[in-house]
């Protein structure tokens, strides 16, 4: 493994790589995110943003109560979010637990959703508290069942204890399992890492270890994808691109429930890493409720008035 020539895989080289990162000033990062939240996105640009956001949604269900019926309904919605309007694009992916991957993949293929990938949460999601053998098997199962994207969680305990090399090695091993069969998204659970310095550090660690995407949260811990956290991750991705010429994707997940929040995320992308990242290959939004709000706003733009939620399908 070359790790882009940034580290050689040793604890010492990883420490030196992470120690060279500049710090993040909390007040400044929050002020920048707040300023970008004032951008006023109207008319044609709002329409473009809504459709772009729909293609970026990782439509998610991660509940103990998930059943094949629920997952199939989600898949149907993912392929044709608005059954009455064929101009609405499909979402970015369907995101489910490991044991629901085959249900989702089979159903998507059945209904003409071959183009919609299935993402599986992995490595003892959401806590990450399991042995490495279990995490590898978890990932392998999901890939065998047809997952094209793996959303793994990092070991936050190891990270907070300063055992960065353990976090790094886990990502490296899961990346090996993914090989060329699945894209790897690495979840930090930023609500548990707490500081922006930690978010920046985790971002650079994961990117060097082989992440294709870096992702804020599991959706099980609040706060999750706050604008300043996403800003710090986007800055890391931008800097990493300059260092390595490799574009890493970003996926905010958790807490993005309406169109306004989604558009704020797109503004952050546009003014931090730039328009190259404004597509589902490099930016995804992990959400469940968001999709319906995007659809309602889209209808409002077409028809000039807000419809009742009964005019969009619940799942």
């Amino acid at each position: 493994m070359s790790f882009y020539g940034l580290v050689d895989g040793s604890d010492a080289s990883l420490k030196s790589y992470l120690n060279n990162l500049s710090g993040v000033d909390q007040v400044g990062a929050e002020a920048r995110a707040a300023m970008l939240a004032t951008r006023s996105i109207k008319t044609s640009s709002k329409r473009w943003a809504i459709d772009t956001a729909i293609t970026m949604v990782d439509l998610t269900t991660l509940e103990g109560a998930d059943t094949p019926g629920k997952v199939k309904a989600l898949c149907t919605k993912a392929v044709r979010p608005d059954p009455t309007d064929s101009s609405v694009p499909s979402v970015g992916a369907v995101c489910v637990y490991n044991d629901m991957v085959s249900v989702a993949r089979t159903h998507l293929d059945l209904i003409g959703g071959q183009h919609v990938p299935v993402a599986a949460v992995s490595t003892a999601f959401p806590s990450g508290r399991a042995s490495m053998a279990v995490k590898i098997q978890d990932t392998q199962d999901a890939i065998d069942a047809g997952a094209a994207e793996i959303d793994m969680v990092i070991d936050r305990g190891a990270f907070l204890a300063g055992r960065y090399i353990d976090v790094f090695n886990e990502i490296v091993q899961i990346k090996q399992v993914c090989g060329d069969k699945a894209h790897l998204k690495v979840i930090f659970e930023t609500g548990e890492l707490v500081t922006y310095d930690n978010v920046r550090k985790a971002s650079f660690l994961a990117m060097a270890a082989g992440a294709d995407f870096i992702k804020t949260s599991t959706g099980k811990v609040a706060p999750a994808a706050t604008p300043p956290v996403v800003l710090v991750m986007l800055e890391a991705v931008r800097d990493f691109y300059e260092m390595t010429n490799t574009r890493i994707g970003v996926k905010p997940a958790g807490g993005i429930r309406n169109t306004k929040d989604a558009i704020k995320q797109l503004v952050l992308v546009n003014e931090t890493v730039g328009p190259d990242w404004l597509n589902p290959k490099l930016f995804r939004i992990g959400a469940s409720a968001l999709l319906n709000d995007l659809l309602m706003q889209r209808m409002k733009m077409d028809e000039g008035y807000y419809s009742s939620p009964q005019y969009v399908t619940m799942d």
């Binding site: 951008r39 640009s45 473009w48 328009p275």
Partner: peptide, 9 residues
Amino acid sequence: MSFEYAPAP
């Protein structure tokens, strides 16, 4: 495709 901001006067 790019994200041009429409006028917001």
